[in-house]
């Protein structure tokens, strides 16, 4: 490679000088040359002008907002990719293959592709007691819901009538419609009346986590954690509480203590409480 000459600065040396990238002795040599040579000074000014012109945009992009078109493209791609087949099991199985199930199995785009399946399989979830079909199109309850999966020996199945000790639970959620909701919490109440928190996680005494933020327009969006707990034998009632504001864990626990059969719609206006019932095997 041809070396840069510092005593009679070539344009490369001047560009390096302009960038402040020359070591002190070399910079001093260039400065001496600049003091002597009007041609070198002219070249430096030309380089300075080019640099300024490259950086100048006259605010031409300041008002551009790509977000609406990007969102529209993402929705369109999700719609096009929607299939009536059963791709949903794909994300669960990929999730379970990851070490300790810590990482999401799939991106949101793939998940959104499950839109068609979300409703095609709803009737299989016999334990979902909230009928959706008869609701108004504008009713958020028609468009918001969770899907629950039982994971036994690494094999996922839609949550059915029973859950064995040692089984794990996975959830995904759907949040569509004209007025999607913004937050979700999922918890279970066991046969002894104990509350088990699934989402948000609630492990530290003294903390008071809130509902998780959820994506608008999501279909079968997976929630990352594989939940395992020691449930006593007997019925387990799982609540998926969708709301338009974050609800705190202690708030919910307080209401449950005072009123075990809390009417969540009255407590949190606009909320949707989906109830799933299963039974823990002895």
């Amino acid at each position: 490679m041809k070396p840069i000459r510092w005593d009679t600065p070539e344009p490369q040396a001047l560009a390096a000088f302009l960038e402040g990238e020359l070591a002190a002795p070399k910079a001093a040599a260039v400065q001496r040359r600049l003091a002597e040579s009007s041609d070198a000074r002219r070249q430096l000014e030309q380089l300075r002008g080019i640099r300024a012109a490259l950086s100048s945009f006259d605010h031409e992009f300041d008002d551009v907002d790509l977000l609406p078109s990007i969102r529209a493209q993402i929705r369109e791609q999700a719609r096009v990719r929607a299939r009536p087949a059963r791709p949903l099991e794909g994300w669960i199985e990929r999730f379970l293959r990851r070490p300790a199930g810590l990482v999401f199995a799939t991106g949101a785009l793939t998940v959104a592709a499950c839109l068609g399946f979300a409703f095609a399989t709803r009737h299989h979830s016999t334990d979902e007691v909230r009928a959706k079909a008869g609701r108004e199109a504008t009713d958020p309850a028609r468009w918001a819901g969770v899907q629950a999966y039982r994971v036994r020996a690494g094999k996922p199945e839609h949550l059915g009538e029973t859950l064995a000790p040692g089984d794990g639970l996975l959830f995904s959620y759907t949040n569509l419609g004209q007025a999607p909701l913004s937050h979700l919490m999922i918890f279970g109440v066991d046969a002894r009346g104990e509350v088990h928190w699934f989402h948000p996680a609630y492990e530290r005494e003294g903390s008071n986590p809130g509902s998780i933020a959820i994506a608008e327009g999501a279909a079968e969006a997976p929630l990352a954690e594989l939940v395992q707990d020691d449930f006593p034998a007997g019925p387990l009632t799982i609540h998926a509480l969708f709301s338009n504001r974050p609800v705190q864990v202690l708030e919910v626990e307080d209401w449950l203590k005072r009123e075990p059969k809390t009417n969540w719609g009255e407590r949190i206006p606009g909320s949707v409480d989906q109830v799933l019932s299963t039974r823990i095997e002895p």
Binding site: L102, V195, W197, A201, E203, Q228, L256, K257
Partner: peptide, 22 residues
């Protein structure tokens, strides 16, 4: 029905605890 007590399930992360709004 007696008032529920609280148990703490095992979960690996509390990822979105602080995510309340954009």
């Amino acid at each position: 029905m007696r008032a529920p007590s609280i148990s703490r399930p095992r979960q690996q992360e509390d990822k979105e605890e602080d995510v309340r709004d954009s």
